[in-house]
Design a protein around this nucleic acid. Structure first.
Lengths: 328, 328
DNA sequence: TTGAAAGCGCTACCAC
DNA sequence: GTGGTAGCGCTTTCAA
């Protein structure tokens, strides 16, 4: 920039102002400077600019994997959300700082906040970190988490209506004549817990003759949920439908059922949750509860920007939609 | 830091040195400063430090999506690689700056380089951007791309042996008695092109009675590859095996076959490529060519650091392994 | 309108 | 060993 000033024969102040589009610098001069900058391929050092402006122009996106012992980011659902977040963030001219945190979970949130690497933080999924989030939210405002809304939580969440979505899915199964419906998922994760509640609500309001609720605490990982399902099949054969807490779990269930010689949906109907891209392309195509991740990501980033500007925001619950395919 | 110096009653220079663990400052004094820093919850402003040190301590990871018209990051394969990259990068104390670039592709690489946001760049998949990479590599060294090795390319790639992997997969099909094998994939993408060559090589060296090569230019997207497959099925019924250029394509193929009343593997055997986490959990479980992404990510980052240090590095081709499951 | 100069928070050179 | 001081590349008073 000093070079540019020398070339243009003006002060650095003027160059800085011109580049910022300030009306303080004469039109003619500004255009000349802009022209020169382009010509010489000058691009601003964002780092220095940000230091001076006391900002980073970067948002952190953290994925806590406390509920999964496996290392890799396995759930396509998270990935899709990630992609949309990347879009929403870059659309605003910000950078995205991606961070994965796996057990043993230390004070990851605290250190991320104090490290000052970003102007705001979005956490994807509460995982097992409800307390950490609760603590951090007390003194750090620009934080939005994707997940289920917990009673009396003090941090801001965006998520779909897990309970209603789950309920609709189970009601659909009941409507199709299913009476012995099993829930697959681990309620230790807040979102899953809410889906379980929706499942219970649907059963309670179902017709007479409904079998009592039964659940298998399947993990979100494909491998383990398959094993969980197989074990369940061996022990209790009596059910005609499965509501899985995620599409990945549902897909594992379908496979476990097939391995046990059961046909989907004839013997057992299966419904998932998420509507990941692959859901339409499994065999058979999966009935599932769609979450609009594009809207979700947009909402997260909108709220985060509001919070960065000092506004306080309430949590948002987005609607879901049941997508009926051949698995039910 | 100035505050800390005042509190400790020393100069900022000493604080800086103490925090950096410099042996220039007396042991006792250093420990006192460290103690004070901890006590007061002081954390360094990485931004200022990096500005001074003329570095960013950040690596860019770019995913060009030129070959996919759809917006979201659909392929679980990329995501898994992403997760491993995030590990490898954070292990080195660097940050990961994630960038998705979609059509229309401008001079994304050029502007990323000149923007000075990172100390090095990794590009995931060549997509349709071979020329852009070629051009950038001329004058920007800390660049490593995951993908297929092209003849006479001047940029550094890391990838698996696509040709050998594909060949092994097709030879496996031949061994299983299949003679009319179709290739599914779009050779416009370098990696896929190499897999196609492996397919051809296997056919050429196959026993007499092999049907001539046939291919469907299926896209990497699940939706379109399903449509591509359906269209193909309608037109030419005569084949007994499919080698798909990716697991996602293979899964779509399985579904298309099922929809056409064909059984996998009885009527048609299917083999994929990648061994994504879901591959073991499809119905039926997918035979596929495994790429070790953990090793891949490690290698990418190793090479990138070497290049950042000024070393020139050759491209690396990693071995693959055929995983035989029930789909073949 | 313009330019000089004072920092943003840190490191490293210099002299003591 | 230690402490001044001059920047890293930019923005923004403040005076002219």
């Amino acid at each position: 920039m000093a070079d540019l000033a020398r070339i243009a024969g003006v002060s650095v102040s003027s160059v800085s102002r011109a580049l910022a589009g300030s009306p303080l610098v004469a039109r003619e001069r500004r255009e000349k400077i802009l022209e020169l900058a382009r010509e010489h391929g000058y691009v601003m050092n964002a780092q220095a600019q940000n230091l001076r402006l006391r900002r980073t122009q970067t948002l952190s996106v953290v994925i806590p994997l406390g509920h999964e012992s496996g290392q890799p980011l396995t759930d396509p659902f998270f990935v899709e959300l990630l992609g949309h977040l990347a879009d929403a963030i870059t659309d605003r001219g910000y950078g995205m700082f991606l961070l994965k945190v796996v057990p043993p979970m230390g004070d990851w949130l605290e250190s991320l906040i104090t490290s000052n690497r970003s102007d705001g933080i979005v956490v994807i999924g509460q995982s097992t970190e409800h307390k950490a989030l609760e603590a951090a939210a007390q003194r750090y405002s620009p934080l939005v988490v994707w997940g289920g809304q917990m009673p009396r939580q003090s941090y801001c969440t965006v998520g779909t209506d897990n309970k209603a979505g789950a309920r609709a899915a189970v009601e659909h199964l009941i409507e199709r004549g299913r009476r012995r419906i099993v829930f697959l998922g681990d309620p230790a994760v807040p979102e899953i817990k809410l889906r379980y509640q929706g499942y219970l609500a649907a059963l309670e309001n179902g017709p007479r003759g409904m079998a009592p609720p039964r659940s298998v605490p399947a993990h979100l990982l494909a491998e383990s949920s398959y094993a969980d399902m197989r074990a369940f099949l061996d022990e209790h054969g009596e059910f005609d439908a499965v509501f899985a807490a995620s599409d990945v779990i549902a897909m594992s269930a379908i496979r476990a059922l097939a391995a046990a010689g059961l046909s989907v949906p004839k013997d057992v109907a299966v419904v998932g949750y998420d509507d990941i891209a692959l859901a339409a392309h499994t065999n058979p195509p999966l009935t599932t509860v769609k979450q609009d991740l594009r809207a979700g990501a947009q909402t997260i980033i909108d709220l985060l920007f509001k919070r960065m500007a000092g506004t306080t925001t309430d949590s948002v619950i987005l609607p879901t939609r049941l997508i009926v395919r051949q698995s039910s």
